[in-house]
Design a protein around this nucleic acid. Sequence first.
DNA 1: CCGACAACCTGTGAGC
DNA 2: TGCTCACAGGTTGTCG
Length: 275
Amino acid sequence: MPELPEVETTRRGLAPHVIGRRIVSLKVRQPALRWPVPQDLGHRLAGGMVAGIGRRGKYLLLEVEGGPTRGCLILHLGMSGSLRVVEADTPPGPHDHVDLVFGDGRALRLRDPRRFGALLWQAGDGERHPLLAHLGAEPLSDAFTADYLYQRTRGRSASIKQVLMDANLVTGMGNIYANEALFEAGIDPRHPAGRLAMARCTRLVAAIRCTLERAIEAGGSSLRDFVGPDGSPGYFQQQYAVYGRAGAPCRHCGRAIRQIRQANRSTFFCATCQR
DNA sequence: CCGACAACCTGTGAGC
DNA sequence: TGCTCACAGGTTGTCG
């Protein structure tokens, strides 16, 4: 489920409930996530305190201080992960794999049916972790400019849609928002990335920003509380322009939205509005 | 360096 | 109702 807007909404929703909390223990019911949960993770965390919660791309970064090691608990939600704050004695559901138990009797609970998510540790600065070290620009930061996009796409023959989903170029764009941003920019998803003119890079960068910011805003206002015994945080139902709308009329021109496959992922676009 | 593709897992909905 | 199949919002690793 989670692309950048959902992860950012999760970060903001959790912040007031985890920052400043003392960590008592880590309960791992299922260590087999995308990578095994490190065996010694509980020892590293116990006694520490959550000093902050950040985000890099789709990774959540819990900064931990005051324990045995100063470092960062790295969380990725994969395709199906979600986080909630529950009373620590709330009985876990079938896919509630990990609890980070706090001193106040609550716990941060990770649910992830498909187990594509991850829970990792990096001593010191979390962004030094090998999985994060080579990530591309944050799309909402000043580093993500038309010039950056233009330079980094030169020589790439792959389609612009595939390249937008390359986290080492720009982080956080998943299948949904790659589709949506390309529609917003009026660019054909099949267009070779390396042949995008500068003017189109400018439009695309603006469209990406706008699409993501709107989604974060929608998430912030419609997301249910992160604190409670059951249910998932209920990711917001966006009003998508193209994603999942094959055959439905384009909201601009009224012609049918097309669906194709690119790199084994579904692509949705309007062949009239996107060139 | 680049790109195509398989792999990791479970749930769900369509079609028979 | 129950079976099988395709597909799902992510990312890495391998191979050519």
